[in-house]
Deep mutational scan, measured.
Amino acid sequence: RHRTTFSPVQLEQLESAFGRNQYPDIWARESLARDTGLSEARIQVWFQNRRAKQRK
């Protein structure tokens, strides 16, 4: 699998969602996937990585 590159618009949507809830449930992730055009799995990994980045 190649590395996913996120567009500025996608990142804005993801960061906005992260600001509201750092642990989105499956319904929120699937909604974000539809809105961004990404797969739910990529959304899930993005949130995992974003939480790890915040802990540093």
Rank of each mutant, 00 (worst) to 15 (best):
P24D: 04
E30M: 07
W46K: 00
Q22M: 07
S31N: 11
L32V: 03
S39A: 10
R34M: 09
R55C: 15
A41K: 14
Q10P: 03
E30R: 12
Q54I: 05
N21T: 11
R3F: 15
F18A: 00
F47P: 00
Y23L: 04
G37F: 04
G19Q: 09
Q13H: 08
I43H: 00
Q54L: 13
A52S: 12
K53G: 12
L14I: 02
S39V: 04
L38P: 01
W27Q: 15
N49C: 09
K56F: 05
L38F: 02
I26Y: 12
N21H: 03
R29T: 13
Q22N: 08
T5C: 05
N21S: 08
Q22S: 09
D35L: 14
F47L: 04
V9A: 14
T4H: 13
W27N: 14
T4R: 09
R20D: 07
E40A: 12
W46S: 02
R1C: 05
E12D: 11
S31D: 09
R20Y: 05
H2R: 07
Q48I: 11
Q44K: 13
E12L: 11
W46L: 01
S7R: 02
T5S: 09
F47A: 01
S7L: 05
S7N: 07
T36Q: 00
P24I: 06
A52Q: 04
L32W: 02
V45H: 09
Q10I: 14
N49E: 14
F6A: 06
L11S: 05
R34A: 09
D35E: 15
R51L: 08
E40V: 11
K53P: 07
R34Y: 04
V9I: 08
P8T: 11
R34T: 08
Q44Y: 07
R51M: 05
R51E: 00
Y23C: 07
R51A: 02
A33N: 02
R1M: 15
R1A: 15
L38V: 11
G37E: 08
R3A: 11
R42F: 07
R34V: 08
R51D: 00
T36I: 08
A41L: 09
S39T: 09
G37I: 02
T4A: 09
E15K: 04
D25Q: 04
A52H: 15
G19P: 02
E40K: 09
A33K: 07
W46P: 02
L11G: 06
S31H: 09
K56R: 09
R42S: 15
R29H: 01
A41H: 08
R3E: 15
R3G: 14
G37Y: 02
S31E: 08
R1S: 09
L38I: 09
V9L: 12
K53L: 14
T4W: 10
W27P: 14
S7V: 03
N49S: 11
T5D: 12
W27I: 13
S16M: 13
W46G: 02
E30V: 12
H2G: 07
R3W: 09
F6S: 04
F18W: 04
P24E: 04
Y23F: 05
R34G: 05
N21D: 10
R34K: 11
W27D: 15
K56Q: 15
R29G: 01
R34E: 04
R42V: 15
V9M: 11
E40L: 12
R3I: 12
S39P: 09
E40C: 07
V9K: 14
I26L: 10
D25Y: 02
L14K: 00
R1V: 09
D35I: 14
Q54M: 09
H2W: 02
F6G: 04
L32P: 01
R55T: 09
R55P: 14
F6T: 06
P24W: 10
Q10D: 04
I26G: 08
T36C: 07
I43V: 10
R20N: 10
F18E: 02
N49A: 13
R29Q: 11
Q48T: 11
A33D: 00
R29I: 09
A28L: 11
R34C: 03
K56S: 02
S39N: 14
Q48W: 08
R20I: 09
Q48M: 07
R42A: 15
W46M: 00
F6R: 02
E30C: 10
L11K: 10
R42Y: 07
A17M: 04
L32N: 00
N21L: 02
T4P: 05
N21G: 06
E15P: 00
R20K: 13
Q54T: 12
E12H: 03
R50Q: 09
N49L: 07
R34F: 03
Q22D: 05
L14H: 00
D25L: 02
E30H: 09
W27H: 15
Q44I: 13
D25S: 11
H2A: 10
A33W: 02
